[in-house]
Design a binder for these strands. Structure first.
Lengths: 352, 352
DNA sequence: TTGTATGCGTTATCAG
DNA sequence: CTGATAACGCATACAA
């Protein structure tokens, strides 16, 4: 493989001049430039990115650590982030953490190893106890939860408020016995900070505000928030004779399963039971019935996360006064569809 | 940031010894090793991956170029590939090409720049005319189509056979006027090699074998294979009074839209119209009605693709006799669900 | 406008 | 078992 030296020799110039041509430096005579370009073409020269990275101390790549790409939610998020990063000429490398704390820390450490210029970390496995570990000397943005007041930039969803709005929407549509399908946790007594628990809090607040009782029997905790688990859960709720007329699902994915489970059990949605999800994944609009949900404005979140990260990367060298850590909470809207009795037209109710 | 030299100094050894410790080389005395490890911990040392890459001429990262991560199909594929790559200690960096030929070539060139040790390329935009461009001197595996007899390894789906089986399944279930919802193309007169056209070919073969006429009015070509396009298409088919009792959708994604569109039009599936898709994305099982489809065994494809790529990477240096280019075609099965009159239990019909 | 010298941090080689 | 030396390919600072 040809190096910059080979090109220099072939073009009868110095390596420096070749470098200048490659990087579009202004001070190169046209004739020289063309001579060099010709030599590059002749030798099929390619820059060696590893060498350039070493020299510059930058890789032009940021890491994105998410639990899994193969999910409507994280897939969409990843796509939005890749798109946003492009505007900063940043490549995105996705790490799947499988929601494990271990792997999330691994991702942090890869970034530390300077494989990445920075890291966008969607924490699911790490808890407040790990805040200390986030005190690293390279750019990190936490995405998707609102758990750390901590030492890093943070882009979050209004989990509690939005869940309250979702539940309130069910109440406004006449539901009185509203179940929640949530993820694991919620029984430790400590303050819970995972997405599922935050959304549960919002649900509780809405019930309280409306003066509805909080029946523990209406709380369904699943090990995993998958479609399969949602379907099993819904079937079991019906089979066991549980009395409910509404379901708030903490993610659209699990809501898809719930809709399927209710159909299996012969329960009509929205006539007998109304269902609302959270995330507004692409599929929601095309289910039968279409799924009412919370839209947390992924694109804005993704843009803001990349913006923050790019900013930190920029000011990493100059020793400028570090900007304060920022916390950005996205706006949200309630998307009303058939599963709560909406019609085809999507009504939006903006909140923030 | 501490370097290997700093650690060496702190531990009172040479840089080489530190390197040996880091890389678990056998010939290091235990006492020395511990001295070094202590120094590393004290200085919070991290290897500089860029320097290592430069020195070794490898990055330990492979590229995966797909049209988009935010799709049930490619999301699942990406997840499978990441998992498979892990077993070879290879990191995967996803490039979104947006199905554009330009971006697919860009990905090739990044690989050429040695950012990646190799590339798995899911071609959609490139055509047979670009075969020449694949003649590169670094490892590449083409994934997902069966278009190039060409100069690279190739992991493909049995698009034609599987589509024929899907269509035959509709016929066996009693359909006689079977529509196909396919992507753009198919009117150029030339031999078409994109996924959609290959699947169309399988559809035609099945009709011919069964002695059914091929009515051009039953062929729906969509600009994009999205849920939205599928829904619009299905509504329009019904509205226009088209006579059909079965639909073969070339992807599950578009099939999801079609199911929704038929529901909008008041058409009952499977009683009035039967529907089958292709890909067996996770959602298919949980739709109402659940979607019959083709399962092309993604996991095996992903594993084989990574295996081939890792093999090429391995034998890149030694100047060994290059192994012949390989073409791997996965097995498939027909998954029968409610949309073609199946019951809850998934019946599988293995083919390959 | 172009060239020279130097070092980024690591590891392969080989000598001790 | 350990260390000295060199080189991976590029870009920065500075000199010419």
């Amino acid at each position: 493989m040809a190096t910059i030296q080979d090109v220099a020799k072939a073009a009868g110039v110095s390596a420096m001049t070749v470098s200048n041509v490659i990087n579009d430096h202004p001070n190169v005579r046209k004739a020289t430039r063309e001579k060099v370009l010709a030599a590059m073409a002749r030798l099929d020269y390619r820059v060696n990115v590893a060498a350039r990275n070493l020299r510059k101390g930058r890789t032009g790549t940021v890491g994105l650590a998410v639990p899994e790409v193969n999910s409507p939610y994280y897939g969409r998020l990843a796509a939005a982030i890749i798109a946003a990063a492009e505007r900063y000429s940043l490549r995105v490398c996705i790490e799947q953490t499988g929601a494990s704390r271990e792997n999330e820390l691994d991702a942090l450490s890869l970034s530390r190893n300077r494989l990445y210029d920075g890291l966008i970390l969607s924490t699911v496995g790490m808890g407040p106890a790990d805040v200390e570990l986030l005190k690293v000397d390279h750019p990190v943005v936490i995405l998707g939860e609102r758990i750390f007041g901590g030492p890093v930039d943070h882009v979050a969803m209004p989990n509690i408020d939005a869940s309250e709005a979702a539940t309130r929407h069910l109440i406004e549509r006449g539901c009185r016995r509203i179940a929640i399908v949530r993820g694991p946790g919620g029984d430790s007594g400590e303050e819970e900070v995972d997405v599922s628990s935050l959304r549960f809090t919002g649900y509780q607040q809405a019930l309280r505000s409306a003066g509805l009782p909080a029946d523990p029997g209406l709380v369904q905790s699943l090990e995993t928030l998958t479609m399969r688990a949602g379907a099993l859960c819904a079937r079991e709720m019906v089979r066991s004779g549980l009395d409910f007329d509404g379901v708030f699902c903490v993610t659209d994915t699990v809501a898809m399963g719930v809709l399927r489970g209710l159909a299996d059990a012969g329960v009509r949605v929205p006539e007998q039971v109304k269902v609302i999800g959270f995330d507004n994944v692409e599929e929601s609009e095309f289910l039968v019935p279409s799924l009412s949900t919370i839209d947390p404005d992924h694109d804005t979140m993704a843009r803001r996360a990349v913006e923050l990260l790019a900013g930190r990367i920029e000011q990493t060298e100059p020793g400028e006064p570090e900007a304060d850590r920022e916390e950005f909470v996205s706006r949200f809207s309630v998307v009303v569809r058939e599963s709560t009795g909406g019609n085809d037209t999507t009504e939006r109710e903006d909140k923030g």
